[in-house]
């Protein structure tokens, strides 16, 4: 039994090299931040110096206020919990160069008059060679978690890729000024793991950008050179609120203060309205179809009135789905 039931203590017996506090470590962690002093090392014990942070711009009371406002509904939402987490990313900087070759197919219908004087059409196919290069410096943020672990994780990842932000050298004291007990997530990826993911991402990005310019790309070669990397901790608030007897979650970007994603109550009034919409479109799909068919009949095109049926069906089906949905999610 000795090998299979090692007590948990042996996994967490690591101590911070700087302040000697016990570290909480899971077997997947490869970069560890001390929760007491912020000292950051690899699992082998090497200090990480290129460590940056996005400093949080909101504190717990701002977040509570923000969520109550965001939910609206007469301020009936009661925030029960707001947790600040610092989520690790490796920022991989690189120079990427791609060359691609392919073609674009052009298909045009030409009308002409043949020797008997009849109007005819023919399809003309032409090929346009497509080639080009991408040459750029990229900076890719790689979220250092292997599995999805917290609400709105994907949205935080996405938000970070699109907005430019001011990073600051990691300074434990200036972080704790905003929140006394910050929670640091450890990284499950080493710098090298993250670089490989970033490389694949850029390769795929170049490939899909080349693909979008052509009918077929037969050759796309990418050369990537790493120019730098650093560890970045990004603030994220997870907020829970009660609405009546129900509990909902909201994820907030701690840097931009924006709601990344949040659950909102679905009211009975909303469900009733959606049910009414489905009945309305049944009506449109029936009576409307009659008038459209009558209108098109002189041209012999009454078959086209099926379009009204299909369109009404899509809207009515969507409304029925809304009527019975369990919860609703909103982004800011």
């Amino acid at each position: 039994m000795e090998s299979t039931t090692k007590p948990i203590e042996t996994m967490t017996a690591l101590k911070c090299q700087s302040c000697n506090a016990p570290l909480t470590v899971s077997p997947d962690d490869v970069v560890i931040v001390c929760g007491y002093c912020g000292y950051t090392t690899t699992i082998e014990g090497d200090k990480i110096d290129n460590h940056f942070v996005l400093e949080p711009t909101v504190d717990a009371s701002d977040v509570r206020e923000k969520v109550t406002d965001w939910v609206g509904r007469g301020g009936k939402a009661q925030v029960t919990e707001a947790i600040l987490r610092f989520v690790p990313f490796w920022v991989e900087e690189m120079h990427a160069h791609s060359t691609y070759q392919g073609y674009k197919k052009h298909q045009e219908t030409e009308y002409y008059t043949d020797s008997q004087g009849k109007r005819r059409s023919r399809t003309k196919i032409e090929y346009e060679p497509i080639q080009g290069t991408f040459d750029e410096n990229r900076s890719i943020n790689v979220l250092c978690r292997r599995g999805a672990t917290f609400y709105s994780q994907g949205e935080l990842d996405k938000a970070l890729q699109v907005t430019k932000r001011e990073v600051k050298p990691f300074n434990y004291n200036s972080i704790t000024a905003a929140e006394k007990n910050p929670l640091f997530l450890n990284s499950e990826l080493t710098d090298a793991d993250a670089y490989e993911i970033a490389e694949t991402y850029v390769e795929d990005d170049h490939r899909s950008r080349a693909d979008s310019r052509a009918t077929e790309i037969w050759d796309c070669h990418t050369r990537i050179q790493k120019t730098g990397s650093y560890l970045l901790h990004v603030p994220h608030w997870l907020v829970r609120y009660r609405f009546g007897t129900e509990t909902y979650r909201v994820g907030i970007d701690g840097y931009t203060k924006k709601v990344l994603k949040g659950e909102v109550p679905v009211t009975t009034a909303f469900r009733a309205a959606m049910y009414f919409v489905s009945i309305l479109f049944l009506f449109i799909g029936t009576v409307g179809t009659y008038f459209v068919a009558e209108f098109l009949r002189p041209q012999g095109l009454e078959m086209l009135s099926f379009a009204v049926v299909i369109l009404s069906l899509i809207i009515a089906a969507f409304a029925i789905r809304q009527t019975f949905k369990i919860s609703s999610e909103k982004r800011e």
């Binding site: 049944l282 799909g285 029936t286 009659y290 068919a293 009558e294 009135s305 009204v308 049926v309």
Partner: peptide, 12 residues
């Protein structure tokens, strides 16, 4: 001629 509206009614 109620053919088209009836098709609409029955499908939706």
């Amino acid at each position: 001629d109620l053919f088209y509206p009836a098709i609409g009614l029955t499908t939706i």
